[in-house]
Nucleic acid binder design. Structure first.
Length: 878
RNA sequence: GGACGAUUAGCUCAGUUGGCAGAGCGCUGGCCUCACAUGCCAGAGGUCACUGGUUCAAGUCCAGUAUCGUCCACCA
């Protein structure tokens, strides 16, 4: 008993549908993972978005792809877990909060550490939920009961565990070294956190006694403790080893001249000044030659007392002043314009100052060797494979990782210092008294690099260092999905820390996707004002359309462009699906699933066969992370095969069924094909598929937990595909003539068809199908010849004549034939030349040659017919 | 300085193992045909950046050039 179908709107309205299903799925616990499940595990740990952020298109892409994988695997019988979470984003939060404070005329130091952290937590609580809500809006099927935060209790314990272990192994150590200092953030930065930007500068040639050298940073002259030349440079060999007394802006300074390989004799004058306190290269040279360090620029970016009369001045102001002062003293030989790269803080874009200070480091070299091996012996597979080389090169050239930051928001370094005996203690638990002397301890005030805790993310979220059921079941995780921009920051660190601490790879696959650009290919940024708001797109076109767009454009290149037009196109696709479903649903009256569901005739067998290859393509695409291939296969099948052909054919059987059995068989095909397609599409478009699926006859309570389609070999029907191709060709041929001859679609045409023997059966059997879709009366006659007043079409070896009568003049037909004749002639010339070459005939595989011969014969037959036809028209018999 | 990517239809881009160049949008012509005008039918439009090479056969493989882009790098 089918209830009278409620009227369904002819436009799909995503808003109501999306609002209805997500809470329902959540309520039914479909997202919840069970570590005790016997099913094979499939696990993704989300790249944690910054807690203060809101969803941008990059997140939307990243999480849509993950959701597609998770939903597919869940339907495919895997025990799936998608762990969600957020990152505390130490330095990024500092930048935001300090800007707020600045507006109030304060600094973080005015507030003090405690109050600042209160503020940070408040900010986290306030805005931390935003991105989670937005991920839900996107349809992300994360296990929200396992939501983690990099600074929650468990993860903080993991951070300490990792730190202590690495320290005990001697892999974490403190060192006085030259670092990248951000004078605005008031913290050290890792090399990776320094961005380079080309800027115009002045290259100032300064006289150093008998020598002259060029520099772009004259202010560091005050910190010079040496000069260096190349060991093999004959020009300066006489000075090496000598200490020169050099007149300068503040009296004379004495500098020693050393020889060092780091100096390029070709560049500038071949002499460099050595400022070990303010330049990484000079620092190294200084170490090699035992030159003293003189710090003249402080952590605040201003000159120190050591800078004499410049003390307290800003470093850039000093640069201008010192050049002027030297010019006054005749110490400047000349100034040239110069363009070079300056280092900027990746968070606040302030020019970084190299400074010497004591910081914590990880000796990552040994970890990198293991991570490198894992990517080569197949334990970790990077897709697209081209990124492996980038990963390799970085790992090979890796340098110690500076992990301490002079910030407050983050994981405080678990090291305590005893002021009484000077001992250092690194501990898993907080210490209050010195274990050696009982003296009062001071905890290191610094926090860890944000990326240290993110580096533990795949296993810290699963309960490490405890041996939890989650770790046993879901670790190593199946795949890491992220943008290629954080391959070094994050992917490499996780690989190194994961392999070292857990002795297992943190993920088996790494899928690096492209980055989203705007429609003009520009990087999106707030300052450019070209940020595409995913929420706006979802509101305008629906979440399903947006998600499908992301999957469809996720080709394996470097960048992705999103435009409204593209999303609109897939909105139309969703609407197409909706209407196809409407057609099916409104024709199910009397349908008996237990009734006649036998073979549904040629079109039925054909659409089932097409469905199988679509399923296979989608699975192949997903397995290879070729989301665009998978999406494209479904799109093409649903729109072109199912809607454009099968539904049009099925209408005939539904509206004018030959027999009740036929009607039921067609209904059965419609239901099964549509239902299967919905399941295939569900991971891409979760909402509309659930909505339609629920209205169709189905088994189970939700499409989310239905099975993912597998290709059925028995349903693959090459013969049906071949035969349908003949019918499609015949129909298209008639439509083509109708179009070219400008015959109104409403006009009923008379068509005479001379079937070739091999086409006879199929054309006879499906005459009415051709008649319906080509809107014609079809006569079949194996001995027919072209009647006067008809247009010719070639259907493979068969011929088809469309009777034009007095409907149109024949000029159009002449043009059409001429065009066809030209085309055929060109083909023949090309093929004759090819087949005339002995090397081709002898060397190419036999099947390729045979195919070309066949094509040539076909084209010759075609040409003969076209020419005959053309001749008869030329005689004016049209 | 090194590495990597891109260059294919008017636009945005697919094209995995070499074997008849594809999609979406846009364009042209015709249609409100009882699922859908967010639609239907038909059509036009490509020297696959350039130069060589390998091959019977190159958008695809190799070498190089040009232009654009990205990342890495201690030439001050």
């Amino acid at each position: 008993m089918t209830p009278a179908p409620a009227p369904i709107a002819d436009r799909y309205d995503p808003v109501a549908v999306e609002a209805r299903w997500y809470p329902e799925w959540e309520r039914r616990n479909y997202f919840r993972a069970d570590p005790a499940s016997p099913k094979p595990a499939y696990c993704i740990v989300i790249p944690p978005p910054n807690v203060t952020g809101s969803l941008h298109v990059g997140h939307a892409l990243d999480n849509t792809l993950q959701d597609i994988l998770i939903r597919t695997k869940r339907m495919d019988g895997f025990n799936t877990l998608w762990v969600p979470g957020t990152d505390h984003a130490s330095i990024a939060v500092h930048v935001i909060l300090e800007r707020q404070l600045e507006a109030e005329g304060k600094t973080r130091h005015d507030l003090g550490r405690e109050a600042f952290l209160e503020r940070a937590w408040a900010w986290k609580e306030e805005s931390g939920g935003t991105i989670i809500r937005q991920l839900k809006r996107l349809g992300a099927s994360c296990d929200w009961s396992r939501l983690r935060f990099t600074m929650d209790e468990g993860l903080s314990r993991a951070v300490r565990e990792a730190f202590v272990r690495l320290y005990d192994e001697g892999l974490i150590y403190r060192d006085d070294y030259i670092v990248n200092w951000c004078p605005r953030c008031q913290t050290v930065l890792a090399d990776l956190e320094v961005e380079r930007e080309e800027r115009d500068a002045e290259f100032v040639y300064i006289k150093y006694g008998p020598l002259t050298l060029g520099t772009v940073r004259p202010e560091t002259k005050l910190g010079d403790t040496g000069l260096a030349v190349h060991p093999n440079d004959p020009r300066y060999a006489q000075y090496v080893g000598r200490t020169l007394e050099i007149p300068s802006v503040d009296g004379t300074v004495s500098v020693r001249v050393v020889a060092d390989e780091a100096v390029d004799p070709e560049f500038g004058t071949g002499v460099i000044k050595v400022t070990p306190g303010h330049d990484p290269v000079d620092f190294e040279i200084g170490r090699r030659h035992n030159l003293p360090i003189r710090t003249v620029i402080g952590f605040d970016g201003k000159m120190t007392a050591a800078a004499g009369r410049y003390a307290g001045l800003d470093r850039f102001e000093t640069r201008r002043r010192i050049v002027a002062d030297m010019q006054a003293l005749g110490l400047v030989e000349r100034i040239e314009p110069y363009r070079h790269a300056v280092g900027l803080c990746y968070r606040c874009k302030t020019v970084v100052e190299p400074l010497v200070s004591k910081q914590w480091y990880v000796n990552v070299k040994p970890l990198a060797e293991v991570a490198l091996a894992a990517a080569h012996d197949g334990r970790i597979t990077i897709t697209p494979a081209g990124w492996t080389k980038t990963y390799d090169q970085w790992m090979e050239g890796i340098r110690p990782w500076c992990i301490s930051r002079q910030l407050w928001w983050g994981h405080r370094i678990p090291a305590w210092y005893c002021d009484r005996d000077g001992s250092v203690h690194v501990s898993r638990t907080d210490l209050s008294a010195c274990p050696q002397c009982g003296g009062i301890l001071r905890q290191d005030p610094d926090v860890l690099d944000t990326w240290f805790s993110s580096g533990l993310w795949p296993f810290s979220t699963l309960g490490w260092p405890d041996e939890t059921a989650e770790l046993r079941t879901y670790y190593p995780t199946s795949v890491l999905v992220t943008g290629f921009d954080i391959i070094f920051f994050w992917v490499a660190r996780m690989a190194m820390l994961g392999l070292h601490l857990t002795k297992q790879e943190p993920f088996r696959d790494v899928y690096l996707h492209a980055l989203v650009r705007d429609a003009e290919g520009q990087k999106m940024s707030k300052s450019r004002g070209n940020v595409v708001d995913p929420l706006a797109l979802m509101t305008k076109y629906g979440t399903d359309a947006f998600r499908f767009t992301l999957a469809a454009v996720a080709a394996q290149g470097r960048d992705i462009r999103i435009s409204d037009e593209r999303v609109e196109g897939y909105r139309n696709f969703a609407n197409k699906l909706w209407n196809a479903a409407r057609l099916v649903l409104s024709n199910l009256d009397g349908y008996d699933p237990a009734g006649d569901t036998g073979p549904a005739g040629l079109p039925g067998r054909w659409i089932h066969s097409r469905l199988q290859s679509t399923i296979a393509s989608v699975r192949e695409g997903l397995d290879a992370y070729r989301f665009n291939d998978a999406a494209g296969a479904i799109y093409h099948f649903l729109w072109n095969d199912f809607c454009d052909w099968y539904l049009e054919i099925a209408k005939g059987s539904l509206y004018r069924a030959g027999s009740p059995g036929e009607r039921n068989r067609v209904q059965h095909t419609l239901v099964t094909v549509l239902e299967t397609t919905l399941r295939l599409l569900h991971p891409f478009m979760p909402f509309i598929t659930e909505e339609v699926w629920q209205r169709l006859p189905h088994e189970g309570e939700s499409i989310m937990v239905a099975s993912y389609p597998r290709p059925v070999a028995a349903a693959v029907a090459p013969d049906a595909e071949r035969e349908m191709a003949v019918l499609v060709q015949a129909i298209t041929a008639v439509r083509n003539i109708r179009g070219e001859m400008r015959i109104t679609p409403g006009a009923m045409l008379d068509v005479l068809l001379r079937p070739a023997p091999e086409h006879g059966d199929v054309l006879h059997a499906h005459r009415s199908l051709v008649e319906a879709l080509a809107r014609c009366r079809l006569t079949l006659d194996p001995r027919a010849s072209r009647p006067p007043g008809s247009a010719l079409a070639i259907v493979g070896p068969s011929e088809l004549y469309v009777m034009l009568g007095g409907v149109v003049d024949f000029a159009g037909e002449r043009l059409r034939l001429d065009k066809e004749i030209r085309r055929a002639s060109e083909q023949i010339a090309f093929l004759e030349a090819k087949l005339g070459r002995p090397d081709f005939v002898e060397r190419a595989p036999a099947d390729v040659v045979a195919k070309e011969r066949e094509r040539l014969d076909e084209q010759r037959r075609l040409l003969a017919k076209l020419q005959a036809s053309r001749a008869s028209i030329a005689e004016g018999r049209g």
